[in-house]
């Protein structure tokens, strides 16, 4: 039985191409960086070389988007072995992916598709997590996704599902605060109840990001600054969780690095103030 990886308290950024030069040429004031695993699961060339150079300066978390942990027909072994090779070389802080599915047989949607929170889905996801952790030889973190459809068939809440999943498999959780907010608005649940429902001792990493508001739904676009409501939710999360690695994700309309670092400074301030509440409790 795996146990979640050790706690790491610090503030980081998602490493994006637009900021490669900054990270290679200057001493960027972050405690860790997170990279999209698949971008570096290649045979060779510049991507791997850049990652090695960044790794010499910073701890690195590997964050995947293609494991498809909820696939009905199991996991792709080639994918797992490539991820294992990358993790063995990089020795990451965390290896994470999403509680979602994207592949069915030879079809791969390359999107983080939702799962119904049923016993059948829980059994399947736990089997797949066991297999992934066995192949990787380490415990993983799984992230709560933003979702745009919900299922009448779901007898569990998302936080109950995450709780059962982490306890049965020994995996940790990556809490995406923006995703909690987006899904809570889209499906009408209480975001603070979500934070209180997940097992706090399993959360190892937090994502913060921006979203787009449309008249009907919120969409997780990662193309804007973190909004006030998400900062507020983050403060609540930190007061419940205590020290947890926190980072900001920007995947579109990526601003110059100083702007993202300014945003990370806000996270540091909120984190520092609210962690004290958790420690006092």
């Amino acid at each position: 039985m795996f146990t979640p990886p050790p706690t790491f308290s610090g503030y980081g950024l998602g490493l994006r191409k637009e900021h490669y030069r900054d990270f290679l040429d200057t001493d960027v004031p972050v405690d860790f960086v997170e990279v999209i695993s698949e971008n570096f699961m290649v045979d060779g060339g510049q991507p791997r070389q850049i990652l090695r150079q960044v790794r010499e300066r910073h701890p690195v978390a590997l964050h995947g988007v293609s494991m498809s942990i909820g696939s009905f027909d199991g996991l792709d072994r080639d994918y797992l072995h490539r991820l294992r090779a990358l993790a063995d070389e990089i020795q990451p802080l965390f290896v994470s992916d999403h509680l979602s599915w994207s592949r069915l047989g030879r079809f791969n949607s390359h999107d983080l598709l939702p799962l119904p929170y049923t016993e059948e889905a829980l059994d399947l996801v736990c089997r797949n997590i066991d297999m992934a952790q066995d192949v990787l030889g380490r415990s993983m973190l799984f992230e709560n996704p933003s979702t745009y459809v919900s299922f009448v068939d779901s007898p569990m809440t998302e936080w109950e599902f995450l709780d059962h999943m982490s306890k049965r498999t020994g995996c940790g959780l990556l809490l995406d605060v923006n995703n909690v907010y987006v899904s809570s608005r889209n499906h009408g649940f209480d975001a603070h109840a979500f934070l209180r429902g997940i097992p706090a001792d399993r959360v190892r990493q937090i994502h913060l990001a921006g979203h787009t508001e449309t008249p009907e739904v919120l969409i997780d676009t990662h193309d804007q600054p973190v909004c006030v409501d998400v900062w507020s939710l983050y403060a609540d999360a930190m007061s419940l969780l205590g020290p947890v690695a926190t980072m900001i994700e920007r995947d579109d309309a990526i601003p110059p690095l100083p702007e993202v670092l300014d945003e990370l400074a806000i996270a540091r301030d909120i984190g520092r103030r609210n962690m004290r509440l958790a420690e006092a409790a």
Binding site: S109, H110, D111, L113, T147, Y148, V149, S150, F151, V152, N186, E216, V217, I219
Partner: peptide, 16 residues
């Protein structure tokens, strides 16, 4: 998949 509005499904299809 869903009862009623397909707005959510439309988002997934558009993303895809």
């Amino acid at each position: 998949l869903v009862h009623g509005s397909t707005t959510g499904l439309d988002i997934y299809q558009n993303n895809y």
